[in-house]
Design a protein around this nucleic acid. Structure first.
Lengths: 344, 344
DNA sequence: TTGTAGGCGTTATCAT
DNA sequence: ATGATAACGCCTACAA
C-alpha cells in the first residue's frame, strides 16, 4: 500500500513521452515545447515530484555532505565550533554528517571509516587527544576526500589546518599576570602530545623568560584533562614550598576542576591564588569562580573558517592544477579577555 | 594524477573476470572458485577497495542516514541527547545528518527540506519552541520518511514520540518542597505552547492542590527562555507583597538566569528563597548556585530511545502490515535528584 | 563455477 | 522539439 515516490520515468509513462523530455521540461530546458513543458510540470506538481538527490549525487559523484568529527560535542567549545561549521555549510548547500571520537583513537578511526563508506565529499576533524598516527586520515586524501583539521591539528606539513595560534596569546597572558604583580606563575598544561599543549608551553616559557626570571619547571604540571588528573596537578602545586601566585590552566574545564580542588583546600580563589584560563566559554559566567581572564579562541569562527576552506578546496577540485598540491594553513588570532573579578 | 577510487569494475578488468564474479567473491558467495576468490580478495585489499555506499544505498533505496534536528546543540541537554542518538545509531550502522533550528520555525523548515532532499531514511527532531504547525513534518510521512519526535514533541496523536513525563515529576517536586516547609512555591514556566510547559504546569497545579492550598496565579510566571524574559519574571515575583519561599524554574538555564537576577537583588540564594529546577545538567555542579534539587530528564536516554525506536520503525517498513499505521509513544520516567545545598 | 544483462533515477550526448 | 541510449557502481536472477 506504499505510495511510491514519483520518478521521471513514472511521469514519462503517464504522459506518453520520453524520460529525457521530462527531465528537460523539469529543468526548464530552452528548446522544449511549451505545451509539453506545461503538461510535465503540472503533473510533476500534482504528483509532488521531487528529484531523488541520491541518484543525482550518485551520478555526479558528489553528495554535498561533509563529515565532521569532534572529540566531545558536550564541550561548549566544540558545540560552538560545529555551529560555525553548520552556518558555512548551509550557505553553500552542504550538510553535516556528525560523529564523536570521545577522545578515543580507535573510535575515531571507526568513525572515519564510516564517513569514508558514506563517501562524504570532505572531512573536517578535530583530533582526539591521543591520536598520533594519521594514516587513516591521510589515506582519505588519496581517495580524493579532502581533510581539514581544526583546533586540534596534527604535526603534519601536508595538511589543511585551521587553528588558533596560542603561542603569542599565552605569552601575552603571562606578561599580563607579571604586570599585575604575580611573580610565581604556574601552568597546568594539557597532554604533551597535543600541538595545542606545545604551543601553550612555548608561549609560557617565552613569557617567563621575558621577565628575566629563571624558569622553574616545578611550576609546570600536566593533566590528561580528566578531573582526577587535574586535581593531582593541583595537589603538587599546592604542596610546593613556594606556592604559585597565579595558575594558568589549559582550558576552562581544567580551570573549573582546578578551582574546585583549590576551594576544597581552603584557598581563596583569585585572592590567595589568581586563576586564568583559555576558551572563554559563555558558561563560565555562571560558574562559581570565573577565571580572572581567559583567552578567547573563537571556536565558532574556527569552525566557520574550516568549512569555508573545505568548500574552497572542493570547488577547486575540478580545476586544473600545476601538479603539486597546496595545503592551506589558517591561523585565528586569539584575544585576551578580562572578566569581572570574583573573589569568594 | 587523481587516484580514482577502485570499483568492482576496475578489479574485474585487471583480473580479466566479470564484475559479478568480483562482486560475489567479495561477498563470500558459496559457489565461487577458491582460486578466483582469493585473487579477487587480495587485489581488493591491495587496492584498498571499499564498496561505494552511495551506489549500494541508491540501489537499495536506503542510505543508513538519519537526520537529527535540534534547537541548540550548545545546550548540554541536547548535546547529551545527540550522544544517545549517535550511540544507538552506531550500533546499527546508521549515521547522523545534523542540523539546528535555533528555535526558529523557518529555519527548522529549511533544515527539514534539506534532509528531505538528501533522502534521509528517517528524521529525529526536537521541535523549535515556536513551531505549532507540523505540515512540513507530516509531509515526510508521505515520502515514507518516518519522523520520531523527542522531548519537545507536537500535540499530535498520529506521531512517534519519546518524551519525559514531567507531570508526575513536577507534582513530586512540589510535594517535596511543601514537605520541607516551603509554603509559597512559585513557578517560572516556559512558553505556553510547548507541551513540556503544559505538562509542568499541570503537575505544578496538581501539586499545589494536593496541599489543599488555594492556587495563586501570581505565583506562576512565564519566560520565553531568554535571559531578559527570565529576569522580567523574577522581577515580578520579587515585587509581590508575599514573596515566594521557593521558585521552580523551567530548566537549569532558566535557573541560572533567575538566580543571577536574585543575587543581583541581594537575595540569599537557597536561604531567602530556595531554587529547584529541571534537567540536572552536569555543568550545574560547577555553577555558583546549583539548584537544591532538579528533575533529571535523561537526555541521553531519550535520544537513545528515539533512535532505537527509529530503527525499529525502519526495520518494520518492509514488513506486511494490517493496513493501519501504529504510532509509538514512549515515556521516560524523570527522577528527582537532590544536590548538596549551597548557600551563598 | 562463471558470465551476461537488467535495473535503480537521473542527466548528457547523440540522433531523429 | 523530442526520443533513444549510455553512464554512474553495485547487485542478482538467469543463462551457460
Amino acid at each position: 500500500m506504499e505510495n511510491k515516490l514519483p520518478t521521471v520515468k513514472e511521469i514519462a509513462r503517464r504522459l506518453n513521452v520520453s524520460v529525457s523530455t521530462v527531465s528537460r521540461a523539469l529543468s526548464d530546458h530552452p528548446r522544449i515545447g511549451l505545451r509539453t513543458k506545461t503538461r510535465v510540470q503540472e503533473l510533476a506538481k500534482e504528483l509532488n515530484y521531487e528529484p531523488n538527490a541520491k541518484a543525482i549525487f550518485f551520478k555526479q559523484r558528489k553528495s554535498f555532505i561533509v563529515g565532521v568529527i569532534l572529540p566531545f560535542i558536550r564541550e561548549e567549545f566544540f558545540s560552538q565550533a560545529i555551529s560555525g561549521i553548520e552556518a558555512a555549510a548551509m550557505e553553500h548547500d552542504y550538510t553535516i554528517l556528525f560523529g564523536q571520537s570521545y577522545d578515543n583513537p580507535d573510535r575515531e578511526k571507526q568513525v572515519v571509516e564510516t564517513m569514508k563508506k558514506q563517501r562524504v565529499d570532505g572531512l573536517i576533524i578535530s583530533l582526539s587527544k591521543e591520536t598520533n598516527k594519521y594514516d587513516h586520515l591521510q589515506a582519505l586524501d588519496k581517495y580524493d576526500i579532502p581533510v581539514v583539521y581544526f583546533d586540534r591539528v596534527p604535526q603534519l606539513e601536508q595538511a589543511h589546518k585551521v587553528y588558533c595560534d596560542l603561542y603569542k596569546g599565552t605569552t601575552e597572558m603571562v606578561n599580563w599576570l607579571f604586570n599585575r604583580g604575580y611573580r610565581r606563575v604556574a601552568f597546568i598544561n594539557g597532554p604533551d602530545k597535543l600541538s595545542a599543549s606545545k604551543e601553550r608551553l612555548k608561549g609560557y616559557l617565552e613569557g617567563v623568560s621575558k621577565q628575566k626570571l629563571k624558569i622553574d619547571m616545578q611550576m609546570v604540571e600536566t593533566t590528561d584533562l580528566s578531573r582526577e588528573s587535574t586535581h593531582e596537578a593541583m595537589k603538587k602545586l599546592l604542596a610546593l614550598k613556594h606556592r604559585p601566585h597565579a595558575i594558568v590552566t589549559f582550558n576552562d574545564y581544567v580551570h573549573m576542576d582546578a578551582v574546585q580542588y583549590a576551594e576544597q583546600h581552603n584557598i581563596l580563589i583569585n585572592k590567595d591564588i589568581a586563576f586564568v584560563s583559555y576558551a572563554n566559554l559563555p558558561i563560565t559566567n555562571y560558574t562559581a569562580y570565573p577565571p580572572l581572564a581567559s583567552i578567547e579562541q573563537y571556536p565558532y569562527g574556527q569552525g566557520n573558517k574550516a568549512m569555508e576552506l573545505m568548500i574552497r578546496i572542493l570547488n577547486e577540485k575540478g580545476m586544473p592544477t600545476n601538479g603539486a598540491r597546496t595545503y592551506h594553513n589558517e591561523k585565528v588570532v586569539p584575544t585576551l579577555v578580562m572578566h569581572q573579578p570574583v573573589i569568594r
